[in-house]
Write a protein that binds this DNA or RNA. Structure first.
Lengths: 340, 340
DNA sequence: TCGACTTGTGCAATCGATTGTCCGTATTTT
DNA sequence: AAAATACGGACAATCGATTGCACAAGTCGA
């Protein structure tokens, strides 16, 4: 096995009989170095198989060309798409990406913050853990002017830029769609009300009902953690009631799935007896039986946009960076709401 | 806005009137420092809000406590689960994780290698891009004795440890299951034959046929890139032939999905006319109609095991590190193969 | 011919933490 | 009581790349 010891700029310098500083400048294309020398240095670097040591450079320049990402869980499609968007753009701009998962736990999230800070990332993109109530750990960044951008699950308390999808409109579209299909009693399974996204989806739903003069019934609106299990419980509660709804708008596809399963088990026809709309367009939603009408949101776009914002702040530190970008959503009509 | 400038061990040292080395040793719990001093240092560190600068430490110790991961694409469930496994264990052991995506392209993969090397990761876990034919870029690691472990899509050419699932057995189980259901003409849609996993699934399939004295027909075995589109093409080719198969074992769930769709569009009953088995147990497979019988493989376990191997090599550099770990697979019976 | 620039490089300090070596006290051994 | 050992801590070099400043050689105009 061939072993190359790590070679440094000084090895190149020695081989060329110049100084380390000259090599450094040549490699960084500094204007003070002659073209002849630059060419010689680059050739020698290639010949020796030189690989820069980012650590040393980072330490000196205190800029790591790395951005940190904190997300609840990588295995959810929306988030992995977002990461793909982040990575794509970041890499194109010469940045590395370090990813940390909070597993939707506040304590883990605080750990992630420490880790990223210790690595001296140049900026951070984050989506908040579902049970985070206290945002102090993020001050590690804000106190030190380390750029921070939130996406999807954002935090109003910290004054940062953020990228969200138009949850309000999504909720509105979902409800109005059901109304247009002739549904009269439309229930809504909403998510934790300390998260902006679920508040907005609910508000959009309410607006659609009001617009069409539909009476808003408190009993038809349930707050849920939106898991598979709790989705079943909600379905049961809604559909076993004396006066069940003829449609349900669920704040995510997972709970919509639970409803479909419950309905099938109980002989409730979809969409004839019960129309259903979800939110997110998960990879499975298209293949459910019946296929699920849902609101599409592009994780990729959200990730890309968040990175754009962040890199802009990093590059251009001045100015007021509290922009909020709202990306569009789209209704995807499928069988679960396809009434005549 | 409060701004804390970054404080270093020297600030602590000054505040306590001791030397930087003492602070460093105290924080690292070095035995040469008295308990009294350690306590004082820790208190002062907390009081000043000291956050270690990993860059400096890494540069000095040339050990970053970071492991790099190269995967084809994060948005595939198997890989994101693997990452979850990797991250979980790595973090527990005090390591950070840097993730790079190759997007299944050899050139991008080579980029990832450079990036991770420049970051001086302590070790690397990788799953090879689908079109990688030349493995030279990995020598950046092997030549320098940087521990490298492959998982899932492995490379025999480089002598490293690896973690795979029992693809052979998976192929065998899938085929034997179809045989047990009374299928006589079982087709196989296989993947690119330069990848170990698809070779093994095919071999397992062949073994099952031989074991049960079923004639192997070349025409029933197709090599495919296993995409949605190509799955349709394969379905068409197989099912429009003069003598179509009565079962198909697809090397992934995506192409199995295509077959289901094709069959439904063409009035072919599943499983009566055509039984189907996929591979991977994707999140959607359970919800297909009919639900898809498939082979389950745990990305999480693979990731965890690979990390275990890697950390062992990092910690314990001696010894011959060319272990191959094979993790079990499991047949999940669902409707798509449920013939009487 | 002489100062005033311009060009191309070298020197040495620096980033922050770690660590081999050395040194003054305090404690123990003989 | 002198010598040996242990203990707690300080000094300074180091990791590799960057960069402000100094400086020598060359160019140019007056």
């Amino acid at each position: 096995m061939k072993k190359e010891s790590n070679i440094t700029i000084h090895d190149i310098a020695k081989a060329l009989n110049v100084s380390g500083s000259t090599v450094s400048r040549a490699l960084n294309d500094n204007s003070r170095i002659s073209d002849r020398t630059k060419k010689a240095v680059r050739n020698m670097a290639k010949k020796l198989g030189y690989q820069p040591n980012a650590l040393a450079s980072n330490l000196r320049t205190s800029c790591t060309n790395t951005i940190g990402v904190i997300i609840p869980r990588i295995s959810r499609y929306f988030f992995s798409s977002a990461i793909t968007g982040i990575e794509e753009l970041a890499r194109k701009k010469g940045y590395n990406v370090i990813i940390c998962q909070s597993n939707d736990q506040e304590a883990r999230e605080a750990d992630c913050v420490q880790t990223l800070f210790a690595s001296r990332v140049d900026g951070v993109i984050s989506s908040i853990a579902i049970n985070t109530k206290n945002y102090d750990h993020y001050k590690t960044f804000t106190n030190r002017n380390i750029p921070l951008v939130f996406f999807d699950r954002v935090c109003e308390e910290l004054e940062t830029s953020q990228v969200v999808v138009d949850d309000f409109k999504g909720g509105f579209l979902a409800a109005e769609h059901l109304i247009s299909k002739g549904c009269k009693r439309i229930a809504h399974i909403s998510g934790p009300q300390h998260l902006n996204i679920y508040i907005n989806r609910l508000q959009g739903y309410l607006k659609a009902l009001r617009k069409h003069d539909i009476n808003i019934e408190e009993d038809l609106i349930i707050e849920s953690p939106l898991t598979r299990e709790d989705g079943m419980a909600c379905a049961k509660k809604l559909l076993e009631s004396a006066n069940p709804p003829d449609a349900i708008f669920a704040a995510n596809d997972t709970s919509a799935l639970s409803i479909i399963i419950y309905a099938k088990e109980n002989g409730i026809r979809i969409p004839e007896d019960l129309a259903i709309v979800g939110f997110s367009n998960e990879p499975f939603s298209e293949y459910l039986n019946p296929s699920l009408t849902t609101i599409e949101q592009s994780g990729f776009d959200v990730g890309t946009k968040a990175t754009e914002l962040l890199l802009d702040i990093i590059t251009n530190k001045t100015g007021n960076h509290q922009e909020t970008i709202v990306l569009p959503v789209k209704l995807i009509e499928r069988e679960s709401s396809n009434k005549k």
